[in-house]
Amino acid sequence: MRTKLLDLHTGGSESITDITDMCRDFVAEGGGDGLLNVFVPHATAGVTIMELGAGSDEDLLALLGDLLPKDDRWRHRHGSRGHGRDHVIPALIPSQTMVPVVSGRLELGTWQSVALVDTNIDNPSRQVRLSFLTGAG
């Protein structure tokens, strides 16, 4: 198993960050077949595989805003207004995903990208752990 820690800055607003190229570069370094595990060690962010750049990312943020409004209904209260909803995000957008790798290439569909989803405007510094798991032989 090989691992790499990515340090990202997501800014001061809700964001979806495309990390596909970073994932692609990481698995290409060693080549081979296996699984790429993408893990976000944060209680207020998640990772997903989806189409990006055609409005889907904005649609996802709008959907999360509709489902989980940033208001004062949340019991978890600290930080900016409505921050408690950020702690619910990983229940909907998981903290990890797996991508098959064949011959050192991500086996994503034509329009699929790997994305970090971060709605927490209080903490723009994020880490993503990439782990390339290969068979023993």
Rank of each mutant, 00 (worst) to 15 (best):
R2L: 11
R2M: 09
T3H: 09
K4F: 02
K4W: 02
K4E: 15
L5P: 02
L6W: 07
D7M: 08
D7F: 11
L8E: 11
L8W: 12
L8G: 12
H9W: 10
T10M: 03
G11M: 01
G12C: 11
G12F: 10
S15I: 06
I16G: 11
I16L: 14
D18H: 08
I19G: 09
I19D: 08
M22A: 15
M22Q: 15
R24C: 05
R24D: 14
D25R: 14
D25A: 12
D25S: 12
V27Q: 09
A28S: 15
A28K: 15
A28V: 04
E29M: 09
G30C: 08
G30L: 04
G30M: 05
G31A: 07
D33Q: 08
L35M: 14
L35V: 14
L36F: 06
F39D: 06
V40T: 13
H42M: 06
H42Y: 06
H42L: 03
A43N: 02
G46E: 00
G46V: 00
T48Y: 07
T48L: 05
T48S: 12
E51A: 06
E51G: 07
L52N: 11
L52Y: 13
G55L: 09
G55P: 13
G55A: 08
G55W: 08
S56Q: 15
S56I: 05
S56R: 09
S56Y: 11
E58C: 07
D59P: 14
L60Y: 08
L61A: 11
A62D: 12
L63R: 04
L63H: 06
L63N: 03
L63G: 02
L64A: 01
L64V: 02
G65Q: 03
L68A: 00
L68V: 02
P69T: 05
P69D: 02
P69A: 01
P69L: 04
P69V: 05
K70C: 12
K70F: 15
D72G: 09
D72I: 03
R73N: 11
R73L: 11
W74G: 10
H76N: 05
G79S: 05
S80G: 04
S80F: 02
R81D: 12
R81G: 04
H83D: 01
V88Q: 00
P90V: 04
P90S: 01
A91M: 04
I93S: 03
P94D: 05
P94W: 06
Q96C: 12
T97D: 07
M98S: 15
M98P: 01
V99W: 06
V99C: 07
V99K: 05
V101R: 08
V101E: 07
V102F: 13
S103T: 01
S103D: 15
G104W: 05
R105A: 10
E107D: 12
E107T: 06
E107M: 13
E107G: 03
E107V: 10
T110R: 13
W111Y: 14
Q112D: 13
Q112P: 10
S113C: 13
T119N: 03
N120L: 06
N120H: 07
N120E: 10
I121P: 03
D122R: 06
N123E: 04
S125F: 09
Q127I: 07
V128K: 09
V128E: 09
V128Q: 08
R129Y: 02
R129T: 03
L130T: 12
L130V: 12
S131P: 00
S131W: 00
T134K: 14
T134C: 06
T134D: 01
A136M: 04
G137P: 10
